[in-house]
Simulated assay, not measured.
Amino acid sequence: MAVLRAIVQDFVETSEPVGSRALLERHNLGVSAATIRGDMAALEEEGLVTAPHTSAGRIPTDAGYRLFVDRLASIKPLRPAERAAIAEFLRTAVDLDDVVDRTVRLLSSLTHQVAMVQYPSLTRSTVRHVELVPLGPTRLMVVLILNTGRVEQRVVDSPVDLAGADGEDRLARVRSAVNAIAVGRGLAEAAAGLETLPDQLEPVDRGLARTVATLLDEALVEEREERVVMAGQANLVRGNEFRSGIGEVLEALEQHVILLKLLNQVGPDGGAVAVRIGHENPYAGLHSTSMVTTAYGPADETLGGLGVVGPTRMDYPSTMAAVRAVAAYLSQVLAE
């Protein structure tokens, strides 16, 4: 394991096959060159390293990287200065779009890989508040605010006059009734509850309540495409890691459905970080890559996933630490 660890570390750093002499010079393994050569031969026989050509040093295989990752005793945490910078950068975002954009750019910058962040999933969202804002005597803006910070706004013609004290009182009653039903519920549950809202109110308020309920029903249950935001695609062409296979990788990354499936396979499990190496990725276009992903969300609630894609020659400990840290701070920001 010590020899395998040394080969992985040297190859990640230099991108050159690693020989026994280099291992002796760079690592204090405490054994002879003959012992190292014997260990390298044993690793090759087990399929954990391979020689790219005759008389060359060794490079890790996908199986070698997997064993290296599985044997990591712990993920080294980021330095305090790095953690403080991440927290400050995300907390100064102005809205959800800005939070997601900052997160993906930050993750790409920290790892030097392609970063991806899934927008908070609407299927896992709950209603935080519904606001009714009069825009005139007969125009009404309905504002739906979700627990993720996502905001939907719709404008509709009001069936009743909203001006004056009577209009304000009517709006207050309908607003209170809507929030009593919807707040804290998932979108489908809230939509179902609002179907009976008009019948629960006095006749004078039913027309306005029916209009608001219909509008919210459309906003709550209409089909929405889940979104993945990416940054750092230029990192793929640095170092000539993929050679002729770069087109297949880029084509796979353009398929957001694929990325969403991979991100949604990551459970909260205490902030666990998942690593898929080479052919462990279920899509052929990503067989030359590694993916490091995790879930984010406040407490035990999963709102989405984030992670990075890069070559299998990746600094796994640092990448895993960055992915875990960014997910933790994103979760904190969304919980505030």
Rank of each mutant, 00 (worst) to 15 (best):
E13H: 08
S15E: 14
S15Q: 14
S20D: 13
E25I: 09
L29N: 03
S32F: 14
S32Y: 13
A33N: 14
G38F: 11
D39P: 02
A41R: 10
L43H: 04
V49D: 02
P52M: 11
L72K: 02
K76I: 02
K76A: 02
P77C: 12
P80L: 11
A81Y: 06
F89R: 14
L110D: 00
L110P: 06
L110T: 04
T111M: 08
V114Y: 07
V114G: 00
V114E: 00
Q118C: 02
S121H: 15
E131W: 00
P134M: 04
L140N: 05
M141N: 03
T148M: 04
E152L: 13
Q153F: 06
Q153M: 08
R154I: 13
V155N: 02
V156Q: 12
V156R: 15
V156N: 08
S158I: 10
P159H: 12
V160H: 09
L162Q: 08
E168L: 12
V174S: 01
N179S: 04
N179P: 05
G186A: 00
A190G: 03
A192L: 10
A192V: 03
L194Q: 02
E195D: 03
Q200D: 05
D205S: 13
L208Q: 03
V212T: 08
T214H: 06
D217T: 05
D217P: 00
A219F: 05
E223N: 04
R224W: 13
V229I: 08
N235A: 12
L236E: 10
V237N: 12
R238W: 14
H256N: 04
L262T: 00
P268W: 09
D269Q: 14
V275R: 09
V275C: 09
T289M: 09
A295N: 08
G297E: 07
E301S: 02
T302P: 07
M314L: 15
M320H: 08
L334W: 07
